[in-house]
Design a binder for these strands. Structure first.
Lengths: 155, 155
DNA sequence: TCTAAACCCATTGACGCCCATCAAATCCCA
DNA sequence: TGGGATTTGATGGGCGTCAATGGGTTTAGA
């Protein structure tokens, strides 16, 4: 599976189109669906972005919950109902729906933020603030990452 | 199997017809029956929508329950007895039966809500409220979706 | 014969698709 | 190694197509 790395800021044109950074596009090829899936983060003023394979995986995981249970209802209402498929145009751009734009407070530019298996889309200024705070927390709390044993990195 | 994503709100015309969103229609092709199956949700003021394959799956799951048990009686009465087949017209519209419309409180518009393997049909305002509450619960309870083990992400 | 559902056709507005331009990074060769 | 040429990615705009919608007409069943 592809890794989404680094951050890119692109312009949103009058039609609401944004170019998806070429490296991200390269990580999103080879699906049935030529585009990406997006939904509003329920914790942050940001848009979550992922590929269809990941969404299918969510779907299978959600199927493991009891149907008609409250947990199932909440998960599907916050993720699947909120998700949109955003196809690429010939130039590799997407159109961000109004409700996503509103949620993230995006205006003339959008920042694509790599987060490993997924990525996020932010209003540039808001991401800058958020990243600054995250770095502070990481430093103050001595954040560490434990590697999973027995797992090769190149899966 | 089909994956239903996003929400779409369409108008109900004077004849009671609603366009089923094109992406949903695309997920509903390839059945014997050109249309969808619907029944009243027993927990929510909404209409459950699905394809025939999913209905078959429900049937098999119900078979796992003891025949003539109260649970079996209740499930079959609530789901199978209540279900209706709604065929598409030439433009991909359906007509919602009166009892479903009443149950969901639908008037001039209907909201189609993707929920993964199935979808729901709501009165727009009611779904907005419900989704808002679901998002709150998701945030407050730190709702997460555990990915099913043994499933590779890189498919 | 009357009503309701199925079928057909017209309109319109958003979106997908195409082409043009421009900037930047890279490549190539003297 | 410097500078010109080429490629690739980002951006802008025009136009055709399809989905959603509305209404009329025919068919079937009561």
């Amino acid at each position: 599976m592809a890794l989404f790395l680094s951050t890119f800021t692109n312009k949103v044109d009058k039609k609401g189109r944004v170019s998806v950074p070429a490296p991200f596009r390269a990580a999103l090829v080879g699906q049935n669906f030529n585009g990406l899936v997006a939904f509003r983060s329920y914790r942050l003023p940001a848009i979550e972005g992922l590929d269809m394979a990941r969404m299918e995986q969510f779907s299978e995981s959600a199927d493991a919950l009891d149907l008609f249970s409250e947990e199932h209802e909440d998960i599907t209402a916050t993720i699947f109902a909120d998700a949109v498929q955003l196809p690429f145009d010939g130039e590799g751009r997407i159109v961000l729906p109004q409700n996503l734009v509103d949620h993230a407070g995006i205006d003339e530019s959008a920042t694509f933020v790599g987060r490993g298996r997924t990525f996020q889309i932010w209003q540039p200024g808001k991401f800058e603030d958020f990243q600054g705070q995250a770095r502070e927390r990481a430093r103050d709390q001595g954040l560490t990452l434990r590697l999973r044993p027995g797992q090769d990195g190149d899966r």
